[in-house]
Amino acid sequence: MELLGFSLPSYGWSTIFGSTISGVFLGSIYALVAVGLTLIYGVLHIINFAHGALLMLAMYAVYFLWNILGIDPYLAMLIVVPGGFAFGYGLQRFIIGKASHGKDEITLLVTLGVAIVIENMALFFFSATERSVRVPYDLDGIDLGVTYAVYPELAALVGSFLITLALWAFMTRTDTGKAIRAVSKERQGAQLVGINVDHIFAVTFGIGVACVAAAASLLVPTYAVHPQIGSLFVLIAFTVVVLGGMGSFVGALVGGFLIGVTEQLGRLYLGESLGVITISVIFIFVLLFRPTGLFGVKAG
């Protein structure tokens, strides 16, 4: 194939199919990270720059639980998910909410400050060393013909669906979920009917962080932990959220898969380093021409 002077390599179907499958697995990880981010945006209307740093922190927690106490990373979810919720609740209630005076641009800067502090604390205490968890089953898996899928990848794929489903059920079936939705639609109205908006904001933020903690458990068996790991994901997560439509869970899931597959095909055709440009290009085009994304309702 010839395109603007570049000649693109041509591959057989099985190679393309293999890349697509690995893109789906990668996409499930992106979706996992993005789903908490989109929840926070949908309700608080803030872009949480600290999301990547919080993912990194949760991954360290999972790592140390395994390294020190010997707890299996998947089992660690039972600890880091509630822990993430509590941490997120406190962070929003006592720091982000208080420091940002209810202004969107300030919130953006506060979350950036939080990200910088958390990232550099990790660097200070844990150093830049990469740490990996080795589970005994990390190389086992099933042969899909065109590619081989290990169990941690399959777990992430299943996990991304389960978490999205759980969030959706929570938002539609529980009273707290309904209160959150009320606040996201009508901030002042909700306040008038006696909903404590600050509390709901903090709960939402907490749930967002709990999601990212669950994602951390699912990521640790395949990704080494280091202070920069969060910032590798955060820009991609923004892209996924914008593409899917800010605030939409289904959008985050679909967006995650789309980005994952696009990235892998990009790598296949444009090479390892230039391939990731596809993500920035999608990001820019969606922001300019369809800021509501695929499933979004309205631009903020």
Partner: peptide, 13 residues
């Protein structure tokens, strides 16, 4: 490493 950025981030907030 990291001390100055922890400080700057905190000052920013």
């Amino acid at each position: 490493p990291g001390v100055d950025l922890i400080l700057f981030g905190t000052i920013l907030i």
